[in-house]
Every structure is written in C-alpha cells, then in structure tokens.
Simulated scan of single mutants.
Amino acid sequence: MNVLTWLFDARLVVAGHPVLWREVVGNLFGLASALGGLRRKVWAWPVGIVGNVLLFTVFLGVVFHTPQERDLYGQAGRQVFFVAVAVYGWVRWSQARRVAREHGQPDAPAVVPRWAGRSGWIQLGVIGVVGTVGFALVFRALGSWGPWADAWIFTGSLLATYGMARGWIEFWLIWIAVDAVGVPLLLSAGYYPSAVLYLVYAVVVASGFVVWWRARGEREPQQVTAGAGVAG
C-alpha cells in the first residue's frame, strides 16, 4: 500500500512548482491517444481511457490534495464522460475493423473521414452553445475555477470526442477551439504540465486536420459502412 501511495503522490519540481507525476503521465497517455486517432487506430480509445482516469484525480485538487488545491469540475467531469464516449468510439471503430478483415481488407482504416455536413454542424452548434451556458452555471454554483472557460472546455471536448467516433473531420477544429481556451485556464490555475501538453496537442490537432482532410476521398467499402453504422 505504501508503494501505491507513493506512486499516487509522486511529484517533481519544475521551476519551483511541485507537479504530480500522474498529471504528466495522464497527459502523455492523452497525447498518445491523439496520435492514434490521427492514424485512425482502434488502440487510441483504450489508451485515452487510461489517461482520463489519471487526470480525473488530478483536476479534483481539493479532494485529492494536489499541489494546486483547486477544483476544476469541468476538467474532472469531462474525464468521466470521455470514458463513456471512448467506449462508444472503441466499439464503433472495432466493428468497422472486424468487418473489414472479414471481407479481406486487413489494412483498412477503422474509419473513413468525412465532413459532418449541415445537419451535423447544427447539432454540434446547438449542443455547444446550450452545453457551455448550462455547465457554466453549474460549475459556477459548485465554485469551479474559471467556470465559463471550464464549461466550454468540458462541452467542446465531448463534442470533439463524439465527432472523432463518427469520423467527422470537423472534430479537429473543435479541439483547436478547446486548446485556445484551455491553455490560459490551466496556466492561471497552476496546472502547468497540462497547459504545456495542450500546446503540444495543438500541433498534433493541426496535423490531424490536414491528414483527415486529405483522407476524406478514400473509398469506404460498402460492407464496412454497414458494420460501422450500427452504433448510430
């Protein structure tokens, strides 16, 4: 138990600021998941879940006695929803890969990128606005640090993850908007490793958008489309 406690509380000091190793490791798992998503690999989902679990304990600073001693309820809460959406994406992409193998296409990608289209953008836009306003009020009532920024990061992250599961190219653009708000918030709250990783994410996200945009013309086998469509 002492070893587990040490692993949970292990920290390093960066520029005079104590930083939890699990914050660093959790973000590295998140970065690996983003890279896997860029390459449209199924393993991106379970890797991301590991990072989500670690970061959940990081952003409840008061509850888990982190060096920051600040609760970011949006940042913590989105880790829970990430796991739920990741399971959806994991199942959806796995179905597509399995069907592709059954039809003699073992190297077929787990998803073929496409634009969300008008209906998709209406869906994303409405949920983005309503979700941000609603969660901002909730987070402010709970005493979250930076409730409006936290609410957008929470809502935008869920939309981006859902868009990735659906194979919508626009999800990369949503991540850019999340990063633009997330970096200042995390810096002001003292979560420096997460802020730095957000900057790295921005580079990965920009690359991912270009890669998926170029891949949008790939031919998706009819059988794979049918298999992947089961999840909705």
Rank of each mutant, 00 (worst) to 15 (best):
L4C: 06
W6G: 03
D9Y: 08
D9V: 07
L12Y: 10
L12A: 13
V14I: 11
W21C: 10
V25A: 12
N27S: 05
S33F: 11
A34V: 07
G36V: 13
G36C: 15
G37K: 10
W45H: 04
P46H: 04
P46T: 07
G48K: 11
L54H: 01
F56Q: 01
V58C: 05
L60W: 03
G61P: 13
H65M: 11
T66S: 08
Q68C: 05
R70W: 02
Q75S: 09
G77Y: 00
F82T: 00
F82G: 11
V83R: 04
A84C: 07
V85E: 03
V85S: 01
G89L: 06
V91T: 06
S94M: 04
R97H: 05
E102V: 03
E102D: 10
G104N: 08
A110Q: 06
V112W: 15
P113S: 02
W115I: 02
W115K: 13
A116I: 11
S119N: 08
G120R: 07
V126L: 14
V126I: 13
F135M: 07
A136Q: 03
V138L: 15
A141G: 12
D150M: 09
D150Y: 12
W152V: 11
S157I: 03
Y162G: 02
Y162L: 09
M164P: 05
A165V: 08
L173H: 00
W175R: 01
W175G: 00
I176P: 01
I176F: 05
I176Y: 04
V178P: 01
D179F: 00
V181K: 07
V183R: 07
P184K: 06
A189F: 12
A189L: 11
Y191D: 00
Y192G: 10
Y201Q: 14
V203N: 05
V203G: 05
V204N: 11
A206L: 15
G208K: 07
W212D: 08
W213S: 11
A215Y: 09
G217Y: 15
G217D: 15
E218D: 09
R219S: 13
Q223I: 06
V224F: 05
A226Q: 15
A226R: 15
A226K: 15
A231R: 09
G232W: 11
